[in-house]
């Protein structure tokens, strides 16, 4: 069970329900494959640094989870098929990265309080 972190950008033309629904479908997809979620973040609508599919902004989401390595290829296959996804990036987290992610969550929690 390795630590992974996936950031993906959804098409901005989607309505709010559609984005929530997409995020939910992929959460279910992962949990059905035995993934354990550590954190889910929604950065909302952000401006892109350069136009992708000539869109200027996109909905950013972050998943942090632990899963078996072979699931990742199926997940990315799904991402590739789904046209709502403009871009995705899955990163394996080593121990320093996991430690950094925890600190980052505490920092964002303190900021919100």
């Amino acid at each position: 069970m390795n630590h992974y972190e996936t950031v993906f950008i959804l098409n901005p033309v989607l309505s709010d329900e559609q984005t929530k629904e997409t995020v939910l479908t992929y959460e279910k997809f992962l949990t059905s494959k035995g993934a354990k979620f550590i954190s889910k973040e929604d950065w909302g609508l952000k401006k892109l640094a350069y136009p992708i599919q000539n869109k200027k902004s996109g909905f950013y989401h972050l998943f942090e989870y632990t899963v078996d390595p072979n699931i990742i290829s199926d997940l990315e296959l799904e991402f590739r098929r789904d046209e709502r996804f403009m871009r995705y990036l899955t990163v394996k987290l080593d121990k320093h990265a996991v430690h950094w992610a925890e600190k980052r969550r505490e920092r964002s929690k303190t900021k919100k309080v």
């Binding site: 640094a49 350069y50 990036l89 990163v91």
Partner: peptide, 13 residues
Amino acid sequence: KRARHLALLPYVA
């Protein structure tokens, strides 16, 4: 390079 892929940073600016 990862940030550029995710359009957090531009390739050319």
